[in-house]
């Protein structure tokens, strides 16, 4: 069961762990809305070090482009974010 349903508001955790991560820096700390739930997929942060990847839900999250760059902008951006990077907003 996924933690977040489509439409849920989520914040990308503003953490800076070392090593291989697939969460772009420009999205950390930003709030978006779940567009769809995908997965589970093996955690790439473990796969990168040849460990077995724990299964994780993957979310497509939609962000207002203006919120990302602190300006008025009605365009949008979507990215795939793994479950452990998201918290309720």
């Amino acid at each position: 069961m996924a933690d977040f349903a489509p439409g849920a508001r989520v914040r990308v955790k503003a953490m800076m762990p070392p090593g291989h991560v697939r969460t772009p820096g420009y999205l950390r700390g930003r709030v978006g809305e779940v567009e769809r739930v995908l997965g589970p997929f093996p955690n790439p942060e473990q796969l990168a070090y040849r460990r077995k990847g724990d299964p994780l839900d993957l979310y497509r999250v939609r962000f207002p482009l203006g919120d990302l760059w602190d300006r008025d902008d009605a365009d949008t951006l979507e990215a795939e974010i793994y479950a452990h990077w998201l918290e309720p907003a």
Binding site: G39, F41, P44, L58, T76, E78, E80
Partner: peptide, 29 residues
């Protein structure tokens, strides 16, 4: 991801106002 309308314009694609531009960052699977 930062100025997509300018990038598209450089490819000759001028989007009218009122058309939403949605950028998809292919970050994972």
């Amino acid at each position: 991801v930062r100025e997509p309308r300018k990038v598209l314009a450089e490819f000759g694609t001028i989007l009218p106002e009122g058309v939403e531009l949605r950028v998809h960052d292919s970050t994972a699977d």
